[in-house]
């Protein structure tokens, strides 16, 4: 009976400690994630403001003939198209998982590509 009591004591304190520690870890991870997101969102917001100013400039009437577009404007449009394509490609992976992809292989391929892109340990992030 003593042994069972000892076992219950270990279970209570052991699981309590493990759960408490992991709860603390979860809160720490959430805090780091929140801080990280804040640091990522702020520069993005600044870039967003700059983009808004550019958009305002684009609201001026455009020439009817494409040949009359200035090189700066053409460059801006090209960058916008490339960025748009890149964003859409990035969004494609979760979209494929969220909706029926048609085949498991197809879904797995998207995940594999996304995961390996994120986790290459030998590549520095820019």
């Amino acid at each position: 009976m003593d042994n069972v009591g000892f076992g219950l004591y270990l279970t209570l304190y052991g699981m309590g400690t493990v759960l408490g520690l992991l709860l603390l870890l979860m809160l720490a991870l959430k805090a780091v994630g929140w801080y990280d997101q804040r640091r990522t969102v702020r520069p993005a917001a600044r870039e967003g403001n700059a983009a808004a100013r550019l958009t305002d400039q684009l609201h001026e009437p455009l020439p009817q003939n494409p040949d009359e577009l200035s090189p700066e404007l053409l460059a801006a449009i090209s960058i916008a198209v490339i960025t748009h394509a890149r964003v859409r490609r990035g969004q494609a992976a979760p979209a494929m998982r969220q909706f029926e992809p048609g085949s498991q292989l197809f879904a797995s391929r998207w995940v594999a590509v996304g995961r390996s892109y994120q986790n290459h340990p030998w590549r520095r992030e820019n």
Binding site: N3, V4, M15, L19, M26, L29, G33, Q118, N119
Partner: peptide, 30 residues
């Protein structure tokens, strides 16, 4: 640990998966 960092609440499931240690321990004592 990327999947865990993306979804920190999963940490709690790790704790739930350790209950067997203590239940087995009680049985071994018995």
């Amino acid at each position: 640990f990327g999947p865990l960092l993306e979804n920190p609440k999963m940490v709690l499931l790790g704790a739930a998966g350790q209950f067997g240690i203590f239940l087995t321990l009680i049985l071994a004592l018995m």
